[in-house]
Design a protein around this nucleic acid. Structure first.
Lengths: 196, 196
DNA sequence: TATCTTTGTAAGTGATTACTCACTTTAAGA
DNA sequence: TCTTAAAGTGAGTAATCACTTACAAAGATA
């Protein structure tokens, strides 16, 4: 019997959740399967997390820490808006590619359970991401680099579609993407919208 | 005991599925709840559909008939590409608004079950929609109306993000949308991308 | 070495799942 | 009016779900 600290087990459990989700879908995400994946008994899961929901919520907190916060830094930097927009896009696509299970988990779990807390956290993540793009765009317009008739709201809506559509394609077809060329092509289109 | 034909009951069952999904989320979509919503016994459900999966698949067929086919007509019409693109966009947004449960059902059920048949049908719907936009764009480029350096693939990817993001926002916040102004704003941005 | 907290487990819990089956009721056609 | 096929029912099925509990073992500290 190997004993590990709660901290380590929590990480192992969260990793197992993402692996199962990506490999087999949400239906297979049972506490029994999570335990099997980690290599502990089902009861042990509840030593380290109070409920199954707590596991998902903790993963969402990781997303905020590992993805939204870096995104915030990029957006609020004192750098040329075009460079910031490019970095924002690349960071988003890269995170998505490297964490395929996560977005799938968040969207499907939130709509499956229809749980208020989970929806709230997911909305926060989604809105933060959107607002940070909006900030870059309004900076660019204020600096008279970009077309002031472009609505930041409409633009950020369109922008959010890029990672979400990619996510859908990954979920449906397991398709992979070449980050560099993908970012470049999308950036070209975005700049055409923003140009005067 | 009221008796109705299988055809009518099938429609009632499919309507119940969408109502439950939109109102309470996928977790509440049990055959027991469907039966309760329709007002028949659980056993009756299986008189009219072989399995629960058959119900979902039948709903997806409805989407092809009621949404993809009209979209195909619009796209293949002999009309000015700009008009066709606008009609395609409006039809998409309108269908989404009037059938809020459907897209939610398709995406979450497909990723929940991770079922091959369901994923295949969903991919077909998704790809058809995307290809039809691509057709309009390549027509416009061939007619030398639009910038030939724009990749139809990248454009259609970006385009697909519009309905999907709207769908996510509806799912998360129950947000509604003013179709006319929403279409106009997005159309403006799309035309900027396509312009020479 | 003795104690005590933490981590582990096996075997449960009741609730819920999709689906079946033996049987009854309805309504249309002969 | 009689027959028959279709529609409806309620009580079942085994499987699975998240979670609990009583108890054992490990490892750090005294």
């Amino acid at each position: 019997m190997v004993r590990k600290s709660t901290e380590i087990r929590q990480e192992e459990i969260k990793k197992a959740v993402l692996d199962i989700i990506y490999r087999s879908g949400l239906k297979k995400l049972s506490t029994k399967n999570i335990a099997k994946e980690v290599g502990i008994s089902e009861g042990s899961i509840f030593r380290h997390f109070g409920t199954k929901k707590d596991i998902i919520m903790s993963i969402m907190d990781d997303v905020i820490k590992d993805f939204i916060e870096p995104l915030r830094e990029i957006s609020l930097q004192n750098e040329h808006p075009e460079k910031r927009l490019y970095k924002h896009l690349c960071k988003t696509i890269t995170y998505l590619k490297e964490n395929k299970g996560i977005t799938l988990l968040m969207f499907s779990e939130a709509s499956y359970e229809n749980d208020v807390d989970m929806k709230e956290k997911l909305t926060h993540i989604f809105q933060s991401q959107r607002q940070l793009v909006g900030k870059i765009v309004s900076d660019g317009i204020a600096m008279q680099l970009w077309d002031e008739s472009v609505s930041t709201d409409s633009f950020s809506h369109l922008y959010m579609g890029i990672p979400i559509t990619l996510n859908v394609e990954i979920a449906l077809k397991g398709e992979d993407v070449d980050i560099k060329s993908f970012c470049k092509h999308n950036m070209d289109m975005l700049l055409k919208i923003l140009s005067k």
